[in-house]
Amino acid sequence: MTRLLLPLEHGPQVVHTPTEDALLHGLKRLPRRVQQVFLLSRLDQLGIADIAARLDLPLLTVERHLFQALQSALPRGEPLASIAGQWYVRLQSPEATTCERIDFRRWLDAAPEHLQAFEQTELRWRSLLAPARQLGQDGGYRNGRAALSMGGCSIAVGLGVVALIAFGLLG
């Protein structure tokens, strides 16, 4: 999702985006799997289908994670920004249908504010590159499946303790 979907005919308009530190903070607050999907898209420039195959996830889940990452940079309480973000992610999907593309074009042409919101969404996506580089600098996001959640770790530790007790090493 690195290419712009629309040409910026009148030059980029001023977009009030949060600082890089605020964007990084927002990305760090996302769940690990969402961060991983976002970093594979943004840093490794993998498409939605490639990410889905690599992580063994449904395409719609990858789309949802990318939208969640994009939302961290979108202004709160602006419905047009949210709708534009949904369109931005959906149009990147190989499952986006011709009918959806036509619906998008109708939405875009319905009001000048829609075009402006979509252009700002594209610029916000680009503004996430520097924070993404900071977040993914160790390259850990490339390691197959996302790191285990605390719940998964708790189960693994519990099973390990049970195994040690069973073998008489604890107790």
Rank of each mutant, 00 (worst) to 15 (best):
Q92P: 00
V34I: 14
T97C: 04
A166L: 08
Q86T: 11
L30G: 03
P79Y: 05
G85Y: 10
L108T: 07
H16A: 14
S149D: 05
G140T: 09
R106C: 09
E100K: 01
R3M: 13
L27F: 13
T98C: 01
R33P: 00
G11D: 10
L30K: 05
Q134H: 09
G144N: 11
G144C: 04
T97A: 08
T98W: 01
L159C: 03
A156H: 08
A52E: 07
W87A: 10
R124C: 01
Q86C: 13
L108I: 09
Q36S: 11
Q36R: 15
G160Q: 03
W125Y: 05
Y141K: 02
W87V: 14
T61V: 15
R145I: 10
H10D: 10
R105G: 01
L5G: 12
L43A: 05
F104I: 06
L30E: 07
P94A: 12
G171N: 13
S154Y: 08
S82G: 02
A111N: 13
I48A: 04
E20F: 12
A147H: 05
C153A: 07
H10Y: 08
A110W: 07
Q45A: 14
I51M: 04
L24E: 02
Y141D: 02
H114K: 08
Y88Q: 13
V37N: 12
T121N: 01
L115F: 04
R54G: 03
F67Y: 15
E113R: 13
R90W: 03
F67L: 15
P79D: 06
Q86D: 06
T17M: 03
A163C: 08
E122F: 05
L128R: 03
E20C: 08
A69T: 04
Q36G: 06
A147Y: 02
D109T: 11
A81R: 08
R29S: 14
H25C: 12
S127H: 10
H10V: 01
A110D: 15
S127P: 00
R133A: 09
E63Q: 14
R124V: 02
G140R: 13
L59E: 14
L129G: 00
G168E: 06
R101W: 01
R42E: 11
Q13K: 11
L170W: 13
L8H: 12
H114N: 15
H114P: 01
R29L: 14
P75G: 05
I48P: 00
T2C: 00
V62L: 02
